[in-house]
Amino acid sequence: MLQLKQIHKVFNEGTPDEKMALQQMDLHLKPGDFMTVIGSNGAGKSTLMNIISGKMMPDLGEIIIDGKNVSAVKENKRSKLIGRVFQDPMAGTAPAMTIEENLAIAYTRTKSRGLQKGVSKNRKVIFQEKLEMLHLGLENRLHAKVGLLSGGERQALSLLMATFTEPKILLLDEHTAALDPSRAELITQLTKEIVEKYQLTTLMVTHNMQQAIDLGNRLIMMDKGQMIFQADEEAKQHLTVEKLLLEFQQIRGEKMNSDKAVLI
Protein backbone atom coordinates (compact mmCIF):
# COMPACT_ATOMS: atom_id res chain seq x y z
CA MET A 1 0.00 0.00 0.00
CA LEU A 2 2.80 2.38 0.96
CA GLN A 3 6.31 1.94 -0.29
CA LEU A 4 9.32 4.17 0.23
CA LYS A 5 12.44 3.50 -1.82
CA GLN A 6 15.82 4.89 -0.85
CA ILE A 7 14.55 8.19 0.48
CA HIS A 8 17.20 10.83 1.22
CA LYS A 9 16.58 14.23 2.68
CA VAL A 10 19.24 16.78 3.59
CA PHE A 11 18.48 20.16 5.11
CA ASN A 12 20.67 23.21 4.46
CA GLU A 13 22.94 21.27 2.16
CA GLY A 14 26.42 22.78 1.75
CA THR A 15 26.17 25.03 4.80
CA PRO A 16 27.62 24.49 8.26
CA ASP A 17 24.05 23.68 9.36
CA GLU A 18 23.86 20.72 7.01
CA LYS A 19 21.63 18.06 8.47
CA MET A 20 21.06 14.59 7.14
CA ALA A 21 17.41 14.18 8.14
CA LEU A 22 16.74 10.92 6.29
CA GLN A 23 19.19 8.39 4.83
CA GLN A 24 18.30 5.44 2.68
CA MET A 25 14.88 5.09 4.13
CA ASP A 26 13.14 1.98 2.81
CA LEU A 27 9.70 1.11 3.98
CA HIS A 28 6.95 -1.20 2.84
CA LEU A 29 3.52 -1.29 4.39
CA LYS A 30 0.95 -3.84 3.28
CA PRO A 31 -2.73 -2.89 3.22
CA GLY A 32 -4.03 -2.73 6.78
CA ASP A 33 -0.57 -2.53 8.36
CA PHE A 34 -0.39 -0.32 11.43
CA MET A 35 3.21 0.69 12.06
CA THR A 36 4.36 2.66 15.08
CA VAL A 37 7.49 4.79 14.82
CA ILE A 38 9.73 5.68 17.76
CA GLY A 39 13.04 7.50 18.02
CA SER A 40 14.74 10.31 19.88
CA ASN A 41 14.26 14.01 19.14
CA GLY A 42 15.56 14.98 15.74
CA ALA A 43 15.63 11.39 14.51
CA GLY A 44 13.73 12.38 11.39
CA LYS A 45 10.28 11.03 12.23
CA SER A 46 8.38 14.18 11.35
CA THR A 47 10.47 14.60 8.22
CA LEU A 48 9.46 11.10 7.20
CA MET A 49 5.79 12.00 7.65
CA ASN A 50 6.19 15.27 5.77
CA ILE A 51 7.82 13.49 2.86
CA ILE A 52 5.05 10.93 2.63
CA SER A 53 2.37 13.62 2.80
CA GLY A 54 4.11 15.75 0.17
CA LYS A 55 4.69 18.72 2.45
CA MET A 56 8.38 18.21 1.72
CA MET A 57 9.98 16.75 -1.37
CA PRO A 58 12.79 14.20 -0.92
CA ASP A 59 16.19 14.86 -2.48
CA LEU A 60 16.30 11.29 -3.74
CA GLY A 61 14.03 8.30 -3.72
CA GLU A 62 10.51 7.27 -4.60
CA ILE A 63 7.17 7.21 -2.81
CA ILE A 64 4.60 4.73 -4.02
CA ILE A 65 1.05 4.72 -2.72
CA ASP A 66 -1.41 2.04 -3.79
CA GLY A 67 0.81 1.08 -6.71
CA LYS A 68 1.14 4.63 -8.03
CA ASN A 69 4.38 6.57 -7.95
CA VAL A 70 3.39 9.84 -6.26
CA SER A 71 6.89 11.27 -5.82
CA ALA A 72 6.07 14.24 -8.08
CA VAL A 73 2.46 14.71 -6.96
CA LYS A 74 1.86 17.93 -5.03
CA GLU A 75 0.74 17.99 -1.42
CA ASN A 76 -2.84 19.00 -2.08
CA LYS A 77 -3.40 16.31 -4.72
CA ARG A 78 -1.65 13.69 -2.64
CA SER A 79 -3.82 14.44 0.36
CA LYS A 80 -6.75 12.88 -1.47
CA LEU A 81 -5.05 9.60 -0.54
CA ILE A 82 -3.68 10.54 2.87
CA GLY A 83 -5.36 11.40 6.15
CA ARG A 84 -3.29 13.31 8.68
CA VAL A 85 -3.61 14.22 12.34
CA PHE A 86 -1.12 16.73 13.67
CA GLN A 87 0.49 17.06 17.07
CA ASP A 88 -1.15 20.44 17.63
CA PRO A 89 -4.88 19.95 18.34
CA MET A 90 -5.47 23.37 16.77
CA ALA A 91 -3.94 22.38 13.44
CA GLY A 92 -6.45 19.85 12.16
CA THR A 93 -9.67 21.86 12.31
CA ALA A 94 -10.91 25.34 11.36
CA PRO A 95 -11.84 27.08 14.66
CA ALA A 96 -14.11 29.77 13.21
CA MET A 97 -16.27 27.22 11.45
CA THR A 98 -18.87 24.90 12.95
CA ILE A 99 -18.44 21.18 13.59
CA GLU A 100 -20.68 20.30 10.64
CA GLU A 101 -18.85 22.67 8.32
CA ASN A 102 -15.51 21.16 9.31
CA LEU A 103 -16.89 17.71 8.65
CA ALA A 104 -18.21 18.83 5.27
CA ILE A 105 -14.71 19.90 4.30
CA ALA A 106 -13.34 16.52 5.35
CA TYR A 107 -16.19 14.77 3.56
CA THR A 108 -15.28 16.40 0.23
CA ARG A 109 -11.61 15.41 0.44
CA THR A 110 -11.84 13.11 -2.57
CA LYS A 111 -14.54 15.06 -4.43
CA SER A 112 -14.22 18.23 -6.46
CA ARG A 113 -15.62 21.17 -4.54
CA GLY A 114 -18.29 23.06 -6.42
CA LEU A 115 -21.43 25.01 -5.68
CA GLN A 116 -23.43 22.29 -4.00
CA LYS A 117 -24.52 22.85 -0.43
CA GLY A 118 -21.76 22.01 2.04
CA VAL A 119 -24.00 20.76 4.84
CA SER A 120 -26.92 19.04 3.13
CA LYS A 121 -29.56 17.01 4.95
CA ASN A 122 -28.08 13.74 3.74
CA ARG A 123 -24.60 14.69 4.84
CA LYS A 124 -25.86 15.82 8.23
CA VAL A 125 -27.19 12.34 8.92
CA ILE A 126 -23.82 10.85 8.02
CA PHE A 127 -21.98 13.37 10.20
CA GLN A 128 -24.18 12.65 13.19
CA GLU A 129 -23.70 8.94 12.78
CA LYS A 130 -19.91 9.31 12.57
CA LEU A 131 -19.73 11.69 15.54
CA GLU A 132 -21.57 9.19 17.71
CA MET A 133 -18.54 6.94 17.35
CA LEU A 134 -16.56 9.41 19.48
CA HIS A 135 -18.92 9.14 22.48
CA LEU A 136 -18.33 12.82 23.27
CA GLY A 137 -21.83 14.09 22.57
CA LEU A 138 -20.56 16.17 19.67
CA GLU A 139 -23.42 14.84 17.52
CA ASN A 140 -25.70 17.21 19.43
CA ARG A 141 -23.47 20.21 18.85
CA LEU A 142 -23.26 20.30 15.07
CA HIS A 143 -23.70 24.09 15.01
CA ALA A 144 -21.04 24.81 17.64
CA LYS A 145 -17.89 26.59 16.51
CA VAL A 146 -14.93 24.23 16.70
CA GLY A 147 -12.89 26.93 18.46
CA LEU A 148 -15.11 26.42 21.50
CA LEU A 149 -14.16 22.75 21.90
CA SER A 150 -11.50 21.52 24.32
CA GLY A 151 -8.15 20.31 22.98
CA GLY A 152 -9.15 16.68 23.43
CA GLU A 153 -12.48 17.16 21.71
CA ARG A 154 -10.80 18.97 18.85
CA GLN A 155 -8.25 16.21 18.45
CA ALA A 156 -10.97 13.56 18.46
CA LEU A 157 -12.76 15.53 15.76
CA SER A 158 -9.52 15.86 13.78
CA LEU A 159 -9.04 12.12 14.00
CA LEU A 160 -12.56 11.49 12.77
CA MET A 161 -12.17 14.01 9.94
CA ALA A 162 -8.88 12.47 8.85
CA THR A 163 -10.28 8.95 8.75
CA PHE A 164 -13.98 8.77 7.92
CA THR A 165 -13.42 9.05 4.18
CA GLU A 166 -11.18 5.98 4.50
CA PRO A 167 -7.92 7.32 3.06
CA LYS A 168 -5.33 4.91 1.67
CA ILE A 169 -2.80 6.03 4.28
CA LEU A 170 -3.23 7.51 7.75
CA LEU A 171 -0.36 9.54 9.20
CA LEU A 172 -0.34 10.34 12.91
CA ASP A 173 2.53 12.47 14.20
CA GLU A 174 2.50 12.47 18.01
CA HIS A 175 -1.20 13.23 17.86
CA THR A 176 -1.69 12.57 21.57
CA ALA A 177 1.41 14.41 22.82
CA ALA A 178 -0.27 17.75 23.56
CA LEU A 179 -3.09 16.24 25.63
CA ASP A 180 -3.36 15.42 29.31
CA PRO A 181 -3.03 11.69 30.15
CA SER A 182 -6.75 10.89 30.32
CA ARG A 183 -7.49 12.71 27.05
CA ALA A 184 -4.47 11.07 25.44
CA GLU A 185 -5.81 7.70 26.54
CA LEU A 186 -9.18 8.53 24.98
CA ILE A 187 -7.62 9.51 21.65
CA THR A 188 -5.39 6.43 21.68
CA GLN A 189 -8.45 4.25 22.24
CA LEU A 190 -10.34 5.99 19.43
CA THR A 191 -7.36 5.62 17.12
CA LYS A 192 -7.34 1.91 17.76
CA GLU A 193 -11.08 1.58 17.15
CA ILE A 194 -11.11 3.65 13.99
CA VAL A 195 -8.04 2.07 12.42
CA GLU A 196 -9.50 -1.36 13.07
CA LYS A 197 -12.93 -0.43 11.81
CA TYR A 198 -11.72 0.93 8.47
CA GLN A 199 -8.64 -1.30 8.22
CA LEU A 200 -6.49 1.77 7.53
CA THR A 201 -2.85 1.49 6.58
CA THR A 202 -1.35 3.61 9.34
CA LEU A 203 1.95 5.16 10.34
CA MET A 204 2.01 6.56 13.87
CA VAL A 205 4.83 8.49 15.52
CA THR A 206 4.91 8.42 19.30
CA HIS A 207 7.32 9.06 22.14
CA ASN A 208 5.46 6.73 24.40
CA MET A 209 7.20 3.36 24.03
CA GLN A 210 4.49 1.43 25.76
CA GLN A 211 1.93 2.93 23.39
CA ALA A 212 4.16 2.06 20.46
CA ILE A 213 4.29 -1.54 21.64
CA ASP A 214 0.59 -1.82 22.45
CA LEU A 215 -0.72 -0.38 19.23
CA GLY A 216 -0.41 -1.75 15.73
CA ASN A 217 1.22 -4.81 14.23
CA ARG A 218 4.65 -3.44 13.32
CA LEU A 219 7.20 -1.13 14.90
CA ILE A 220 10.30 0.70 13.75
CA MET A 221 12.90 2.69 15.62
CA MET A 222 14.68 5.61 14.00
CA ASP A 223 17.85 7.45 14.89
CA LYS A 224 19.85 10.10 13.05
CA GLY A 225 17.79 9.75 9.92
CA GLN A 226 18.03 5.98 9.70
CA MET A 227 15.84 3.08 10.55
CA ILE A 228 17.92 1.22 13.13
CA PHE A 229 15.49 -1.43 14.30
CA GLN A 230 12.28 -2.99 13.15
CA ALA A 231 9.93 -5.55 14.57
CA ASP A 232 7.52 -7.46 12.38
CA GLU A 233 4.16 -8.81 13.50
CA GLU A 234 5.69 -11.85 15.18
CA ALA A 235 8.57 -10.05 16.92
CA LYS A 236 6.39 -7.19 18.07
CA GLN A 237 4.25 -9.47 20.23
CA HIS A 238 7.21 -10.22 22.44
CA LEU A 239 8.53 -6.68 22.73
CA THR A 240 8.81 -4.82 26.03
CA VAL A 241 10.08 -1.35 26.82
CA GLU A 242 13.19 -2.83 28.45
CA LYS A 243 13.97 -4.88 25.37
CA LEU A 244 13.57 -1.82 23.15
CA LEU A 245 15.93 0.26 25.28
CA LEU A 246 18.45 -2.54 25.34
CA GLU A 247 18.18 -2.89 21.58
CA PHE A 248 18.95 0.79 21.16
CA GLN A 249 21.94 0.54 23.47
CA GLN A 250 23.37 -2.39 21.58
CA ILE A 251 22.96 -0.75 18.17
CA ARG A 252 24.17 2.70 19.10
CA GLY A 253 26.54 1.78 21.89
CA GLU A 254 24.98 4.45 24.06
CA LYS A 255 21.97 4.96 26.27
CA MET A 256 18.92 6.40 24.60
CA ASN A 257 19.15 10.06 25.44
CA SER A 258 15.64 11.22 24.89
CA ASP A 259 13.96 13.37 27.50
CA LYS A 260 10.68 12.64 25.89
CA ALA A 261 11.03 8.86 25.79
CA VAL A 262 8.43 7.98 28.38
CA LEU A 263 8.69 4.68 30.15
CA ILE A 264 5.09 4.10 30.97
Partner: peptide
Protein backbone atom coordinates in the same frame (compact mmCIF):
# COMPACT_ATOMS: atom_id res chain seq x y z
CA UNK B 1 -22.04 27.70 2.57
CA UNK B 2 -21.28 25.74 -0.60
CA UNK B 3 -18.41 23.26 -0.75
CA UNK B 4 -16.31 25.79 -2.58
CA UNK B 5 -17.24 28.58 -0.17
CA UNK B 6 -16.44 26.42 2.87
CA UNK B 7 -13.01 25.69 1.37
CA UNK B 8 -12.38 29.42 0.86
CA UNK B 9 -13.39 30.14 4.46
CA UNK B 10 -11.12 27.39 5.74
CA UNK B 11 -8.27 28.81 3.67
CA UNK B 12 -8.60 32.06 5.58
CA UNK B 13 -9.05 30.27 8.89
CA UNK B 14 -6.58 27.38 8.93
CA UNK B 15 -4.45 26.81 5.88
CA UNK B 16 -2.64 23.71 7.23
CA UNK B 17 -5.97 22.05 7.79
CA UNK B 18 -7.54 22.73 4.42
CA UNK B 19 -4.38 21.68 2.61
CA UNK B 20 -4.50 18.33 4.37
CA UNK B 21 -7.98 17.93 2.90
CA UNK B 22 -6.75 18.16 -0.68
CA UNK B 23 -7.59 21.79 -1.35
Amino acid sequence: KTDLGLAIRATGNNETMIRSFSA
